[in-house]
Computed example of a mutant assay.
Amino acid sequence: TRASSKVIKVEAPYGKPVDAEDVRRAGKGKKINIIGFAHGETSTGVVTGIDPYRKVADELGALLIVDTVASLAAVPLDVDRQRIDICFSGSQKAISAPPGMSPITVSPAAEEVFRKRKTKVQSWYFDLTTAMNYWGKDRLYHHTPPISLIFALREAMRLVAEEGLEARWERHRVNQLALIAGIEAMGLDLLVKNPADRLPTVTAVMIPSGIDDVKVRNQLLDEFNIEIAGGFGAVKGKIWRVGLMGYCSQKPFVLLFLAAVEKCLLDQGFRVPSGAGVGAAIRSYSQVETAAAVSR
Rank of each mutant, 00 (worst) to 15 (best):
R2P: 09
S5G: 11
K6S: 10
A12V: 11
Y14I: 05
K16A: 14
P17I: 11
R25K: 15
N33A: 15
I35M: 09
I35R: 06
G40D: 10
E41C: 06
G49Y: 04
G49V: 00
I50C: 04
P52C: 05
P52L: 02
Y53K: 02
K55H: 06
G61T: 08
V69T: 13
A73G: 00
D78Y: 10
V79P: 11
R81V: 15
R81H: 08
R83N: 13
C87I: 13
C87D: 12
G90N: 06
G90P: 03
A94H: 05
I95D: 01
A97W: 03
P99I: 06
G100D: 03
I104H: 03
S107G: 02
E111M: 13
F114W: 10
K116V: 07
R117A: 14
R117K: 08
K120G: 02
S123Q: 08
M132N: 01
G136V: 02
L140P: 00
T144K: 05
F151T: 04
E155N: 07
A156R: 00
M157P: 00
A161L: 12
E162P: 00
G164V: 05
R168T: 14
E170P: 05
E170T: 14
R173S: 10
V174I: 14
N175P: 12
G187V: 07
K193C: 04
A196C: 00
T201R: 08
V205W: 00
I207M: 01
G210H: 04
G210Q: 01
I211W: 09
D212R: 05
Q219A: 15
L220M: 10
L220Q: 11
L221E: 13
E227H: 12
A229H: 13
G233P: 04
A234M: 05
A234S: 12
W240T: 04
C248M: 14
P252K: 02
L256D: 14
L258I: 08
L258N: 14
A260P: 12
V261K: 05
K263D: 15
G269I: 03
G269C: 08
F270Y: 15
F270S: 07
R271W: 03
S274K: 15
G275Q: 09
V278H: 07
G279N: 12
A281H: 13
R283K: 15
Q287C: 04
E289T: 11
A292V: 08
A292F: 11
S295V: 15
